[in-house]
Design a protein around this nucleic acid. Structure first.
Lengths: 190, 190
DNA sequence: GTCTATAATTCGATAGAC
DNA sequence: GTCTATCGAATTATAGAC
């Protein structure tokens, strides 16, 4: 195995390669075990370049974990099956790239990761609950319930990989979780 | 701050002190950041004693994460509110000690932790679902659904500590999650 | 049963040549 | 824009004295 030289790249190309490798490593290994050295190796670049572009490891994670849930507007969610639509959207978003898995894995042991997770919840999910529920004051609580079910399925499916959770197909997950989310958002308080 | 000498202890006393400190550290910091040095310091013992008793870090975690959910027998769960009873039991179990939080935090980045989590699911939760549902073949899937909701609430409440999830009292959590768990265990397949 | 000393790695980060 | 070389700190783990 000899190292094959590689022609120089443009700055943004290198940067993008680093970010993609970082997302994969953070998603697979969590914050501590995703080393700058390993990420640089995956991106076929010297580790010092990572520092040059992102300052330090925290800066790299912050850049790699920028994220927009791209949830539909509450006004476009007026139909009957709000719960099913939301669950389906989350499944798509979770499987589109590895940012959400990275956030989940990192948020468990790293304060910055947990805060980013909380910010996404606060800024992107709570407004949905506020636009759908009867009492806006209850929105954070109902959003937290929705988050608990979505995060839990993500843990079982994409992090712990419990076989029974992995084997369910999309339709089945939506069929079971949709009514749950629907109830958390719209039902009367128990 | 001078180090005060401490009289020698019995072997099992030292061992118990190490295990308690280990559970706290694993629960608070996850596997990588919970160092043997820090655990030994908490237990007021030399780090080499930890190695002497548990061999290595993996062995320490294995010993510290032994766990029995102590779920009721399915026969004793025959009442109407199976879901609520189960959710309440999980909340109690989660707040009784830090083993479950440690398992959740460690399972995210450590293979042994994930496997232990999966084993608890397989050996302790699936039988409950098998004893309650109509079709035993569906038990793993229904148990996975229950696990997803329970794990998700634990993530939101005890790991990420989303304020809206932390502020809910026990009664409220049972009132919302109970019917969900009930449906996952007993409802017709959607 | 307890501790000292230290080996062997590994990691994040920096300085500077080309 | 890229890499070499290296520092300093921290970690797991071992060997052995008392």
């Amino acid at each position: 195995m000899t190292d094959v030289p590689r022609p120089p790249r443009r700055s943004d190309t290198t940067k993008a390669a680093i970010l993609e490798a970082a997302r994969e490593r953070f998603a697979a290994d969590g914050y501590e075990r995703a080393t700058i050295r390993a990420i640089a190796h995956d991106a076929d670049i010297d580790p010092s370049m990572v520092m040059r572009y992102f300052g330090n490891k925290e800066g790299l994670f912050a850049a790699a974990s920028e994220f927009d849930l791209r949830l539909p507007e509450p006004a476009q969610l007026g139909g009957e099956d709000v719960g099913g639509v939301l669950v389906g959207h989350f499944l798509d978003r979770w499987e589109a790239d590895e940012v959400l898995t990275a956030l989940l894995r990192v948020g468990v042991t790293n304060a910055a990761g947990a805060e980013r997770m909380a910010a996404i919840f606060r800024e992107q999910l709570v407004p949905i609950a506020a636009g759908l529920g009867h009492d806006p004051a209850e929105a954070p609580r109902r959003a937290a319930l929705v988050a608990s079910q979505i995060l839990g399925m993500a843990m079982a499916r994409y992090v712990l990989r419990l076989p029974a959770a992995v084997e369910m197909d999309r339709e089945e997950v939506v069929g079971w979780l949709g009514p749950t989310v629907q109830r958390y958002l719209t039902a009367e308080r128990p």
